[in-house]
Design a protein around this nucleic acid. Structure first.
Length: 260
DNA sequence: ATGTCGTAACGTTTACGA
């Protein structure tokens, strides 16, 4: 089962590029972030024509997440638990039933947090505390599950082409890194680091200042797997070439292959 | 060169978020 995550940065602007990538990569499931659309504005027919079931959790103008799945989705939940007053659409989860096992899929768009310090950084850390609680709940189930999406955290210096440029940024501040590490250390596996070591692997290149042409990227899109999902992991890759296409997102897809 | 995008709106331009 091939499961991908892709921050598309606006479905209206990215429909063509997303369809091209789906037709080529043919994931069974795609977890999408930053659809920047309300549910009613999401062009679901375009994906249904390609055989995908579509579940959205949208918001006007900003944020918004969705799941596309060729396999049936069950028990869809929208919104990260832990704050009834949080109106930002950053979390969707569902169970996908594969050939042998069911996998709980969580798609997330973690807050950027800049400028830091400030209320936006406080919101990021509060959101990560809720993410940690959800992760702990998932681990208690002792079943295959994963949390994937745009984490807006650069885990280590090796995950940035120019780490010194990110020292004061919410994506790399020690508190952001520490909190991500604490979540992983509950017992989750970073699927990319389980399969590939070393520097130079990125999932985001800024539109500004020729970041793509200079390969000035960062790795901020991640798959975290429960032990039962990690046991099924056979591959994890970043579709780097997507950044060089026509009207690309500033992120590229990352995907896992599970023997499920 | 505070450099680019995407979205929304009191829209032919500005504001915001990233």
């Amino acid at each position: 089962m091939k499961i991908a995550s892709f921050n598309i940065n606006g479905i209206k602007a990215r429909q063509a590029a997303l369809c091209d990538w789906l037709d080529e990569a043919r994931p069974d499931v795609a977890l999408l972030q930053e659809i920047k659309s309300v549910d009613a504005g999401f062009p679901r027919e375009v994906f249904e024509e390609r055989g995908y079931n579509v579940e959205t959790h949208g918001q006007k103008g900003f944020n918004g997440v969705a799941i596309l799945s060729r396999l049936p989705l069950e028990d869809v939940q929208r919104g990260l638990p832990g704050d009834e007053n949080d109106e930002q659409a950053r979390w969707i989860e569902a169970t996908v039933v594969g050939g042998r096992v069911a996998v709980r899929l969580c798609g997330l768009y973690l807050p950027n947090g800049n400028p830091a310090p400030g209320p936006k950084f406080d919101y990021k850390l509060g959101w990560m505390a809720r993410l940690r609680a959800r992760a702990a709940d998932l681990l208690r189930q002792e079943e295959p599950a994963l949390m994937a999406g745009d984490y807006n955290v650069i885990p280590q210096d090796e995950d940035a082409a120019r780490p010194e440029a990110w020292r004061e940024d919410a994506l790399a501040l020690p508190e952001s890194r520490r909190t991500l590490r604490e979540i992983e250390n509950l017992g989750l596996t970073d699927a990319f680091r389980a399969t590939t070591r070393g520097p130079g692997h990125y999932t985001f290149w800024d539109y500004q200042a020729g970041a793509w042409e200079r390969n000035n990227g960062i790795r901020i899109d991640h798959f975290l797997l429960t032990p039962q999902a990690a046991d099924l992991l056979t591959d994890c890759r970043i579709d780097r070439q997507a950044r060089g296409g026509i009207k690309p997102s500033d992120h590229v897809p990352i995907w896992v292959e599970l023997d499920a």
